[in-house]
Amino acid sequence: MSDTDGIELESVEMARIEAQKALPDLARDALPDGNQKTFIVSVRDEAGQVVLRAALSLIVEVTPENRPA
């Protein structure tokens, strides 16, 4: 999913805070098919250069005693 509009923020620190807030919502809205998914938010400046990246990994593991035979 890509956001082509974006929002303007005052600083990289504000962008970090917004990226961290967005990651759980992305994970909740796009649960993975399978056992592992990494969600990444890239923050770009007005020139389009990435200035910050934040990632959240979602991993599902079944304990050995509960795996199908």
Rank of each mutant, 00 (worst) to 15 (best):
M1K: 09
S2L: 12
S2F: 05
D3R: 13
D3E: 15
T4K: 15
D5F: 08
D5M: 08
D5A: 11
G6A: 08
E8Y: 10
L9Y: 02
L9C: 03
L9P: 01
E10A: 11
E10I: 00
E10H: 03
V12K: 15
V12T: 14
V12C: 07
E13Q: 14
E13L: 06
E13K: 13
E13Y: 11
M14Q: 13
M14P: 01
A15S: 08
A15W: 02
A15I: 02
R16Y: 01
R16L: 12
R16H: 05
I17P: 00
I17C: 02
I17N: 10
I17G: 01
E18W: 03
E18T: 10
A19L: 09
A19S: 14
Q20K: 14
Q20N: 14
Q20I: 04
K21G: 01
K21R: 15
K21A: 10
K21V: 07
A22L: 15
A22W: 04
A22I: 00
L23N: 06
A27M: 10
A27G: 03
A27D: 02
R28F: 13
R28D: 12
R28C: 01
D29I: 00
A30H: 12
A30K: 04
A30Y: 11
A30G: 06
A30V: 00
L31C: 05
L31D: 07
D33Y: 07
D33G: 10
D33V: 14
D33E: 15
N35F: 05
Q36C: 07
Q36V: 11
K37H: 06
T38G: 02
T38E: 15
F39C: 03
F39Y: 15
F39M: 02
F39V: 01
F39H: 04
I40Q: 11
I40D: 05
V41Y: 03
V41A: 14
V41G: 08
V41F: 02
V41T: 09
S42P: 00
R44G: 01
R44I: 04
R44H: 04
R44Y: 01
D45P: 03
D45R: 08
D45V: 03
E46Y: 04
E46F: 05
A47K: 14
G48Y: 03
G48H: 05
V50L: 02
V51T: 11
V51D: 08
V51R: 15
L52S: 06
L52H: 04
R53N: 09
A54S: 15
A54R: 13
A54W: 00
A54C: 09
L56E: 05
L56R: 07
S57G: 10
L58S: 07
L58W: 11
L58H: 09
I59Q: 12
I59A: 09
V60I: 11
V60S: 12
V60A: 10
V62Q: 13
T63F: 04
P64Y: 08
P64T: 06
P64I: 05
P64N: 14
P64V: 07
E65H: 03
E65C: 00
N66A: 14
P68S: 11
A69L: 05
A69N: 01
